[in-house]
Simulated assay, not measured.
Amino acid sequence: MDVYAGRDGSFSLYEDDGVTEDFRSGGASSTTSLVYTHAALRVTVGHPAGTYSGAPTARRYVVRIHGLAAPVGMRVNGGGGLPAYTGESAAVLNGSGQVWNATRKILTVVTPLITVGSGGGVAAIVEPSGATFPAPARQTVYEAEDALRSGVTIASQHAGYTGSGYVDYTNAAVDFVEWTVTVPTAGAYPLGIRYANGGTTDRPLRITVNDTVVAASLSFPPTGGWKTWRTVLLNATLPAGSAVRIRATSTGASGANLDSLSVG
């Protein structure tokens, strides 16, 4: 939900299954109310009125408020202040959070996963917590689809990824994804590679940092389905700099689908 600050606003979101014409005869559709109250800097997201085949049973709402002069601490449904992160993907992967983009003047709130009701009512209230905007967590998430790539393809047919998609390894060897990351201080960092492996065998990858091997054959075991995502963790010593290269290369088996790399 993109909100442009400055005045109150509202919108009704209509949905149906997007495939059949059941909405014509059986009313198989839903309408969700979205309301922004500028004076309170409050966004109210309603539960859908109505439902349809295949409608989600739970949702995580991403609310982006554009045009603020400075960030404020936010909360969801009267809870405590949300933790801050450097990007939306990090907030999603950590369950919820808030992000301030100082260049674009966008304050983003990622809600926890909320069970969907079908009879209307309020699903989420996003509003100031009364606290200042906290310092962002150290963790930064880099999307695989934004990285340097060779051999792999970008895909989006399997749900559950962050960002705009994920990468699918094509060949059993040589294919790679290479992220360029910023490391403020040299030292040991936890690295997390989020992946899905719907096959029945392990799909290991070689991990290098600036061409130095840090894991010759990092295991990416089956996750139980291509829509089931897990994170493989490893620790690596990283040099300081704004152009540290972390590469994941296939080594004898087509790699798993990779969603993102988290550093920190």
Rank of each mutant, 00 (worst) to 15 (best):
5 A>D: 04
7 R>M: 02
7 R>I: 01
8 D>H: 05
15 E>H: 01
17 D>T: 00
22 D>E: 08
24 R>M: 08
24 R>L: 12
26 G>D: 13
28 A>N: 08
28 A>F: 11
33 S>N: 13
35 V>K: 04
36 Y>H: 03
37 T>P: 03
39 A>Q: 09
40 A>P: 02
42 R>Q: 14
42 R>K: 14
46 G>F: 09
46 G>P: 02
49 A>G: 14
50 G>Y: 04
52 Y>Q: 04
56 P>N: 12
56 P>K: 10
58 A>N: 15
61 Y>M: 08
74 M>I: 06
79 G>H: 10
81 G>P: 12
84 A>Y: 05
85 Y>I: 08
89 S>Q: 14
90 A>F: 06
98 Q>W: 07
102 A>V: 01
103 T>R: 11
106 I>Y: 09
109 V>D: 09
114 I>V: 15
121 G>K: 12
122 V>H: 07
124 A>I: 10
128 P>S: 07
133 F>Q: 00
134 P>R: 05
139 Q>M: 07
142 Y>N: 03
144 A>T: 08
144 A>I: 07
145 E>A: 08
151 G>C: 02
153 T>N: 05
156 S>D: 14
161 Y>I: 00
169 Y>I: 06
176 F>Y: 12
182 T>K: 10
182 T>G: 15
199 G>A: 13
205 L>T: 11
210 N>D: 05
212 T>M: 08
214 V>F: 15
219 S>T: 04
219 S>I: 00
223 T>Y: 14
237 T>G: 12
239 P>A: 01
242 S>F: 05
244 V>A: 01
247 R>W: 02
248 A>D: 12
250 S>C: 13
251 T>C: 07
255 G>M: 08
264 G>V: 06
